[in-house]
Design a binder for these strands. Structure first.
Length: 362
DNA sequence: ACGCAGTGTTTCAGGCCCTC
DNA sequence: GAGGGCCTGAAACACTGCGT
């Protein structure tokens, strides 16, 4: 394989920018792994490799940043006249310093559906182990971690529908509508700006998208490829999403949390309680499918219906002296699940009574 | 106004358990 | 026994309230 290169001079020395076909690159690359105690790479994360392989199915897939490769110059022919680098045999001579997940992911995508594309590569010659480590750590420490909320916000820019885009739209709508229970309550872009925010956009979207899709990325790709999404009755909002009825999801969310707000006025407004924070929100979202299915079967998903449930649950909590604070409901999944269970169990104990009341008022 | 310590939030990796 | 989903705890980070 032959690579046309451009020489780049920087303080560390000269390196070479070029392009290579992924099929060619796959033949020559290897990764020096940490377990062997000499390499500088972290263990490959199977999860990331899977994600990248899935991403290769995206019609808009792009790998704009270079794969950084260390090469022993004695193993290739360099032609400075024509600015080309030619490999001499098919040994594994390209050590990937940055981009191991992309390489492994593309490899998997090639095996699964014959994926290939051109890649940007940077070749660095005759680096010592120290230099490899230095390059690797420089790249990875300078790559600032991107906040999840920011990633969700970027979905606004995408043209096609996707579970994340819909969730993001609902987050924005509920945050900006005065009538909404989440008015000025969401930390958009993960930051507090008004002082009244109690929940990050990222968490809100996370909880909502979980009721639309079990694999949002796959759904997004399916939509781009004009493939029909598969229904899943365990996900309350999925069929609305598939039928493009985002405003129905918005309305139900609004009803549900307006009912929370009016049934637990103190808890919703005060930061002494976890109800309007991550724990409360995600706990309520986890409990939602139970209430939703009940509402569906009696044909009522109104604010009144949810209110009947919460009124009853609240009186049960008061009776048992369970306070919705962080002592009873610790942060993390444990507290969320406890909240879900407390709500669901108390609802189930009085299900018939609640249903009867709702039917009578209809 | 500033730094510090304690508390809360968010994300992630790894382990457990269930299902097929 | 493989794979997926769920749960937990650790770690990083942000926020709050306090003392200076």
């Amino acid at each position: 394989m032959k690579i046309n290169y451009i020489e780049i001079n920087q303080p560390i020395g000269s390196f070479y920018l070029g392009k290579a076909n992924s099929d060619d690159l796959l033949k020559y690359f290897f990764v020096n792994r940490r377990e062997q105690n000499v390499g500088i790479q972290r263990n490959t994360s199977q999860k990331r490799i899977e994600e990248i392989s899935l991403y290769c199915q995206d019609p808009d897939a792009t790998f704009p940043t270079p794969i950084i490769i260390a090469v022993d110059s004695s193993k290739v022919n360099i032609d400075p006249e024509n600015n080309t680098i030619q490999t001499t045999d098919s040994n594994k001579i390209f050590e990937v310093i940055d981009g191991q997940h992309r390489m492994e992911g593309i490899k998997l995508a090639k095996e699964r559906f014959g994926f290939s594309c051109e890649l940007v590569v940077i070749l660095m010659f005759d680096l010592t182990e120290e230099e490899k480590g230095y390059v690797f750590s420089t790249i990875n420490s300078n790559q600032a971690k991107v906040d999840k909320s920011l990633i969700y916000d970027l979905f606004e820019l995408s043209q096609k529908r996707s579970p994340l885009k819909t969730s993001h739209y609902i987050a924005r709508s509920l945050n900006s509508d005065i009538e909404s229970p989440f008015y000025n309550r969401l930390k958009m872009l993960g930051r507090r700006s008004q002082g009244s925010e109690t929940l990050s956009q990222g968490s809100f979207v996370h909880g909502l998208v979980a009721l639309i899709s079990k694999n949002p990325q796959r759904d997004m790709i399916s939509i781009k490829r004009d493939e029909a999404l598969v229904e899943d009755s365990s996900l309350p909002f999925r069929s609305y999403f598939i039928e493009n009825k985002d405003e129905v999801i918005l309305k139900i969310m609004s009803n549900y949390f307006n009912a929370v707000k009016s049934s637990f006025p103190n808890e919703w407004e005060s930061s002494d309680f976890i109800l309007a924070k991550t724990t409360g929100y995600l706990g309520l979202m986890k409990a939602f499918p139970v209430f939703y299915n009940e509402g569906l079967s009696i044909g009522s998903l109104t604010e009144k219906f949810f209110e009947e449930i919460f009124r009853k649950v609240k009186s049960c909590l008061d009776e048992k002296r369970i306070i919705l604070n962080s002592t009873h409901f610790p942060s993390g999944a444990a507290g969320q699940n406890k909240l879900r269970d407390v709500f669901v169990q108390n609802f189930k104990s009085y299900r018939d009574e609640i249903v009867e009341k709702v039917m009578k008022n209809k």
